[in-house]
Write a protein that binds this DNA or RNA. Sequence first.
DNA 1: CGGTTCATTCAACGCTTGTTCAATGAACCA
DNA 2: TGGTTCATTGAACAAGCGTTGAATGAACCG
Lengths: 207, 207
Amino acid sequence: MADPQPPSRAEQRRRTEARILDAATRTFFDVGYERTTIRAVAALAEVDAGLVMHYFGSKQDLFRRVIDAAPVPSLDAGPGGAAEAVLAGLADRLTNEPVASLTILRSMLTHPEAAGAVGSAATRYQATIERAIPAEDADLRAAVISAVVLGVTISRHLLKTDALADADPEHVISLLRPGIEALAGSGPGSTDRPGPTDRPDPPDADR
Amino acid sequence: MADPQPPSRAEQRRRTEARILDAATRTFFDVGYERTTIRAVAALAEVDAGLVMHYFGSKQDLFRRVIDAAPVPSLDAGPGGAAEAVLAGLADRLTNEPVASLTILRSMLTHPEAAGAVGSAATRYQATIERAIPAEDADLRAAVISAVVLGVTISRHLLKTDALADADPEHVISLLRPGIEALAGSGPGSTDRPGPTDRPDPPDADR
DNA sequence: CGGTTCATTCAACGCTTGTTCAATGAACCA
DNA sequence: TGGTTCATTGAACAAGCGTTGAATGAACCG
């Protein structure tokens, strides 16, 4: 009574393929690239292992399809508001677990071939921050900010550090805010002005 | 002419065992736990694979021996100087690559059994920081500090983020200092004392 | 010197892995 | 309706893995 007519063959295929891709995403995330077996993915998707190969070619290709489907963590930082944009993005990543991103991240650390696939996204993320930072060492500052976000995300979701795993996201954000603002503004280090909240003119006007 | 007499059997064994342990450490670090094969370790140590098993029992045991031999990143934070102690430790980790720590870290992300083995060390590290922080949410602050150190270390040595990989350690430290100090001091968030350099009595006197 | 210990090697085992390929049967189209 | 396509399966392959156990030969010791 649910389905008045059985789905067409093309539709059936689309569903199966999506189910496999979903099972692969979850498995890659749970146990990483190396420990993920085609058979396990197939079992989770309730199909034969041969079918996975038939549709996706190889384990490597299947993995690429998974990370290609991952949404790029974009952030639109209005000029000057880089710190808040970063913190808002981090708050989002703290509340709802970014499965796709974590899958990629974990794989980058273990599977060298994954590094290239995500490099562009990470670079774009950092470049966005970098453009909003009015300092001559903006590239390094952007990299450090990314590193901080990365460390907190890993500790909470992957390492599940006790105090961080079940902390209130807002609390964590409030703790990080001064540091991120110091990084996003022109703090001490390059210029010789130790003032914490001064913000000179941005070096160029393009966004 | 180098060796007047051949080394004794016990000495020879000690050397071989050390060579295997060294090869294992390097291989685990290079390619992670899963991709490390006994045969590869044996080849690097220029011995037979069976000998590795004979001396170390199993791949799992060999791995445990490697991480047991890793030096615990200790830091003796004088009361109140937690921030500087953390930054000094990070500066050290930025200059000379902490192979053992990175091996453990990478393995924690992929090999669940490694997580328990290193959990105590990480906990001890955080507890040291925690004790030096005069705030009621000291545990969370210590966890965030660890996360920041972790993120920077990973970005530099594992991900090799462009701007971070070849940055001057002192420069990175100077950028991080305000944030770490805000975390280590009693900044805004829990207590209502915004003073940056107040230092109440340490909770206990033991070192 | 002769027997024992032991560091080391070699060949093999059972298992799992990614991958292939022929077989099947239902959906499709003329 | 009858032939073709194609989603799906099952069984198998070769390679690589951790692991084992017997064999070898030199070091040790009484």
